[in-house]
């Protein structure tokens, strides 16, 4: 188990190096110049331009810039935003809870609905229930997130007027963040109606972000269950006179979960990319929106640092899933 863990840990290092290069190169390959964009419509004199290039170090060879950047990372310094002049790391930690809250709600929704749906579909294989669940899942899987988000906004916010269109909470409420999770902070604030407002802001983005993982988890659970239900040990469980509920919910599901957990882990990456779109649609002040805004402004430090941090989050989660996998699969645990 420990060896397994260390092996996975060792894989993190090359991944990290790769991501740092890609992130660094990506933003520089985009046309557009951060200093010109910063100057905006007013324009800038060539002297001032060169002066600023020197200040930010953009006049040095790219390889030197990269090494300088890596040296900073190794000291825990991801640089400073060109736009806000605040450290990238600090901005990240201010905005990350918003994304985390959204992503957690989405993955919980996807798991809580996706697994039972997959199990029932497998147990009632071929029934109208199975067919409609799988039809819906296929639709969800191929749903363009942007379009789907707008559709929900038009219907629930525009037509029915049930949910707000953007933000995390109504502007009527204001309190200092304690945990960074709006659901918890709104409760802690003790302000009447704050929690309800936070929930109503969270609902649509959660649904949008959960759609693809939900579809994937439901399909994976169904196929894993179908395979497991044909196994000899399920027949053994039946021959013991166990109730069907116990056979399906314990003996079969416990085995089917092994591949499903891996799938859930892989969905974290999907969730992060999904968050970028979802946050943009709903003006959700998280790191997804932060990334999009920074790309627009060619804020080199924020984009390369932010991508690296997002990649770290994905790697940490995958590592956690690997460990969890080792725990739920006795054949790996020693």
């Amino acid at each position: 188990m420990l060896r397994f863990f260390l092996y996975r840990l060792a894989l993190v290092i090359p991944t990290f190096i790769g991501v740092s290069i890609v992130a660094f190169a990506f933003i520089r390959l985009l046309p557009g110049d951060p200093i010109l964009l910063l100057a905006g419509e007013r324009g800038i004199t060539p002297e001032r331009y060169e002066q600023l290039q020197a200040v930010y170090g953009f006049d040095r060879p790219v390889i030197v810039q990269y090494l300088d950047y890596v040296a900073g990372i190794l000291q825990g310094d991801l640089g400073t935003s060109l736009v806000t002049k605040r450290p990238v790391l600090q901005e990240f930690f201010t905005l990350f809870p918003a994304t985390l809250e959204l992503a957690l709600c989405a993955i919980i929704l996807a798991v809580v609905i996706g697994i039972p749906a997959g199990v029932f579909a497998a147990v009632k294989r071929g029934s109208w229930f199975d067919q409609s669940i799988m039809g819906v899942a296929l639709t969800g899987y191929s749903m363009p997130i942007f379009w789907w988000g707008l559709l929900l906004i038009i219907f629930f916010s525009g037509f029915l007027g049930w949910t707000p269109v953007s933000g995390r909470i109504s502007l009527l409420f204001f309190f200092e963040p304690v945990t960074g999770f709006m659901l918890i902070d709104s409760l802690l604030s003790g302000q009447a109606g704050a929690f309800k407002s936070a929930v109503s802001h969270l609902i649509l983005p959660t649904i949008v972000l959960a759609t693809i993982p939900l579809a994937v988890i439901a399909r994976q659970t169904r196929s894993a269950m179908l395979e497991v239900l044909g196994e000899d040990y399920v027949r053994t469980a039946k021959s013991k006179g166990l109730a069907p509920k116990r056979i399906i919910g314990l003996h079969a599901l416990r085995n089917a979960l092994i591949p499903v957990v891996t799938t859930i882990g892989l969905q974290v990456g999907v969730l992060m990319t999904g968050a970028i779109l979802t946050e943009t649609i709903f003006s959700w002040p998280g790191i997804g929106k932060w990334m999009i805004d920074s790309v627009g402004k060619r804020d080199y430090a924020v984009v390369q640092g932010g991508l690296l941090l997002i990649a770290s989050v994905i790697m940490i989660v995958n590592l956690a899933v690997d460990v969890l996998y080792g725990f739920i699969n006795p054949r790996i645990r020693r």
Partner: peptide, 23 residues
């Protein structure tokens, strides 16, 4: 179900795959 597994029990051809690997 009250009878099978209690008064009538059965064992199978493939012992390795007849036991649940997770328990």
């Amino acid at each position: 179900r009250k009878i099978i597994g209690k008064d009538i029990a059965m064992i199978f051809q493939e012992p390795m795959s007849s036991l649940n690997p997770c328990f």
